[in-house]
């Protein structure tokens, strides 16, 4: 029974390319990206409103990361070749952001009185911010050939 269900799911995924980005392993990515969108967005919104003067740079960068996460989540759910390419670009941007801001926070801690989502390569978030774009890029590359 379980096997039939599984083949069905694979058939529909293959037949319907628009939905394949968010199914299978993509479903796990949608969940993680969704959670990170909500986390980063609510965190930066709160900080931008309540305590913007404390660390304007850090909070603005958190807001940017929230937008990137949100866009990738949306693209994964929407599916299709255009969305796949857009998500690919965003995942690359995200990876650059994590490494860039991660290095920046280590070199110039004075510029960051408070942490961003991508501080210290996402250490405060169990390094998921680094792992996520890498798996995202791998998945999006594989989704093209499928």
């Amino acid at each position: 029974m379980a096997e039939t269900v599984e083949t069905d799911a694979q058939d529909t995924a293959a037949a319907d390319g628009r939905r394949s980005l968010g199914s299978g392993p993509g479903r796990l990515l949608v969940a993680l990206y969704g959670i990170f969108t909500v986390a980063a967005a609510s965190r930066s919104l709160y900080q931008l409103i309540a305590q913007f003067h404390v660390a304007p740079l850090a909070y603005t960068l958190s807001a940017v990361s929230a937008v990137v996460y949100g866009f990738i989540t949306f693209s994964l759910v929407r599916g299709g070749e255009g969305a796949r390419r857009a998500a690919l670009v965003c995942c690359a941007l995200e990876l650059l952001g994590v490494f860039g801001i991660g290095t920046w926070t280590l070199l110039d801690p004075a510029a960051f009185p408070d942490a961003t989502v991508w501080s210290d390569y996402g250490m405060g978030y169990l390094f998921i911010p680094v792992i996520l774009p890498v798996t995202g890029l791998l998945w999006l590359r594989r989704a093209r050939s499928a």
Binding site: E6, A9, S23, G24, P25, R27, L28
Partner: peptide, 10 residues
């Protein structure tokens, strides 16, 4: 709506 192992992983 994801009746595979990936639903469980999610």
């Amino acid at each position: 709506s994801e009746r595979t192992r990936w639903g469980s992983a999610t």
